[in-house]
């Protein structure tokens, strides 16, 4: 695990990935375990249907039609908020820490004193971000898959994978933003704050956009719009929305390299 920077960074993340993965699986199991009970309580569904549409929009459940169906239940309980949130918190933390954290700790100095070009540091660390996100997504999906099969829940494992993929992508947008800010300025707290703050703002931009007509035309600016709108768990991936999320991530990554190569390192 100490052969190169990529593996070493991944090695540093192994415990973190394991614990976050266990958390995600735990959440999947808990939510799935409640489903059979919810399914047999039509009153819950009736109650939720009576909630003001605005409130549902605000929490990205505007498309919620049938809470007692597996798609409705898991969309509302997991995919509308918790799964992207957890992935996002992990990713933004890692992204902000990747360059800026090492710089603030002072360990970047003797790393860069080795015959390693700076772009390579950026590429390797970003690679670890992608791999960690992928591993977490797969752990969550695997946990869900076991529950779906074990509890005989009527949910497509493919759709589940697609929805998880979408949550990973929206989390990656903000993670790579935090990563890029760390490359530009080397300030971990600032990177985390800006990326996290923008995540909250754009989450509510999308939610409010569903109920406030003045904001409706700006929803497309929110990465969450491109994540929530296609209702992936029901309909599968929507390529154009996915491309927007991937595109943003690629742009942030592409800016990271020259930004880090050009500036002074605080060490």
């Amino acid at each position: 695990m100490l052969n190169n920077m990529f593996l070493k960074t991944l090695r540093d993340q192994r415990r973190s990935i394991l614990y976050w993965g266990i958390g995600l699986i735990g959440m999947a199991v808990m939510m799935a375990a409640f489903y059979p009970t919810i399914k047999n309580m039509p009153s819950v569904n009736a109650y939720l249907q009576e909630l003001p549409q605005n409130l549902k929009e605000l929490f990205s459940m505007g498309g919620l039609t049938d809470y007692s169906s597996p798609v409705g239940y898991f969309s509302a309980e997991l995919f509308s908020f918790m799964v992207p949130l957890l992935l996002l918190v992990f990713g933004v933390g890692f992204g902000a820490n990747a360059i800026a954290g090492d710089e603030e700790k002072g360990t970047l100095g003797f790393l860069l004193a080795n015959p390693v070009p700076r772009w390579r540091v950026v590429v390797d660390k970003f690679g670890v971000l992608l791999v960690s996100m992928l591993v977490l997504g797969m752990m969550f999906w695997a946990g869900m898959a076991v529950c779906v099969l074990g509890l005989n829940i009527d949910l497509s494992l493919l759709r589940l994978a697609e929805a998880t993929f979408g949550a990973m992508l929206v989390a990656l947008v903000f993670s790579s933003l935090a990563f890029m800010l760390g490359c530009v300025k080397g300030n971990k707290g600032m990177s985390m704050g800006i990326a996290g703050g923008l995540a909250v703002l754009t989450y509510f931009l999308n939610g409010l956009g569903g109920m406030v007509s003045a904001l409706k035309d700006y929803r497309f600016l929110s990465p969450f719009y491109h994540y929530v709108e296609p209702n992936t768990l029901a309909n599968g991936i929507s390529p154009e929305h996915v491309l927007v999320l991937i595109g943003l991530t690629v742009v942030f990554f592409a800016i990271s390299i020259p930004a880090f190569m050009r500036r002074d390192i605080a060490v």
């Binding site: 002072g106 360990t107 100095g109 003797f110 004193a113 060490v267």
Partner: peptide
């Protein structure tokens, strides 16, 4: 190279 404020 050995840095002044060594952090490992």
């Amino acid at each position: 190279y050995l840095n002044g404020e060594l952090a490992l």
